[in-house]
Design a protein around this nucleic acid. Structure first.
Lengths: 170, 170
DNA sequence: GCAATATTACTCGGATATACGATGTCCGAGTTAACAAGG
DNA sequence: CCTTGTTAACTCGGACATCGTATATCCGAGTAATATTGC
């Protein structure tokens, strides 16, 4: 049971994009640099978030990524599912049917109780993840984190933000 | 996010061992045959359960595995942790510190809010898993599952059970 | 001076290698029951 | 017939290949700003 490393990157990027104003965007390469990640690899995960409708991507110069939804509509569950895929962590292989004694298929119409129990637990996990909204995480960061860290985050956004409507600013 | 395949096998084996009477044991090879698994590979997982204090192993002829605890003291969480390892699924790599601008270490004494949120959700998951007791799962299986399936399970235990105290029975 | 056009630089997107971990297999150490031999 | 020592078979336990997936990388398609050129 372990989540891929990309989940952490995806959440950090999404949290950073919350601070972007209006139609502005931040290039994927800038985000990769901010977190010391391989740009080409981060793109893969950002792409997954885009496909899931969490981010929007705009190509060309002054392009980049922005949130496709308001931050209070995005939960950690959305991000995790987008990166890891929607299938549950516990996949029942129906090994109860693999024994040497072959019973009729009708003996297995009832779902496997073990599978049901594992899925109940996983449902609780997803419910908890769905309760963690991106807006709340960013809010807590702004109010509780070290001021230097907050300032550095804001400076990064200021520096790389690309306003979509007024490209003449320099 | 996906659990290893061995978790399913481990849970099925543990559930099967609940029906063993008293000091009796079932060999690992028999369990592997019952679920159509590679015997040598299943041993690895059963070994992990033994190391975690969930199972007991007795060597030699008429040896095998038995539960080390009463079934109502064993939860699915215990089994999952034994097989997958105790570390949490989400491991914070502290990528927030990997950026080009290096802040003093004192700026990061507060734990990462994203990590905290993920761990909260995982705590809920573990709590739910801890509530799923092995005794309950077996009880539900006995009362709700198809009678043919229950009979097959009992027959398997009868056939391979190795009483520890009276080996003369044949 | 202005507008239209070609260029260019910058972005994302998918196809392609590589590394690590889970999966699967094998052989050895240990233990206990059975057996044989001696008393 | 009972005791004792030996044998042998069966068990688990850890070390060794193999496969699959996540990780990492590269190159190509697309787009919009910009420079250029003609009017």
């Amino acid at each position: 049971m372990k989540l891929s490393e990309g989940v952490e990157a995806a959440i950090h990027c999404a949290a950073t994009l919350v601070s972007v104003e209006g139609e502005g965007t931040i290039p994927g390469a800038a985000l990769a640099g901010q977190f010391g990640l391989s740009p080409s690899y981060l793109l893969k995960h950002l792409n997954a978030l885009t496909a899931a409708g969490i981010l929007e991507s705009v190509p060309g110069p002054y392009g980049g990524y922005r949130l496709a939804l308001p931050a209070d509509r995005i939960s950690l569950l959305d991000i995790v599912l987008a990166v890891e895929g929607p299938e549950p962590a516990f996949r029942c292989g129906e090994i109860r049917q693999n024994g040497p004694v072959k019973l009729d298929r009708s003996a297995y119409v009832k779902p496997c109780g073990i599978n049901a129990a594992m899925l109940r637990a996983e449902k609780a996990y997803r419910k908890a993840l769905a309760g963690e909204r991106l807006s709340e995480i960013v809010h807590n960061f702004m109010t509780e984190a070290d001021p230097r860290s907050v300032a550095a985050g804001c400076a990064f956004v200021e520096r790389h933000q690309r306003p979509q409507k007024s490209p003449k600013q320099k």
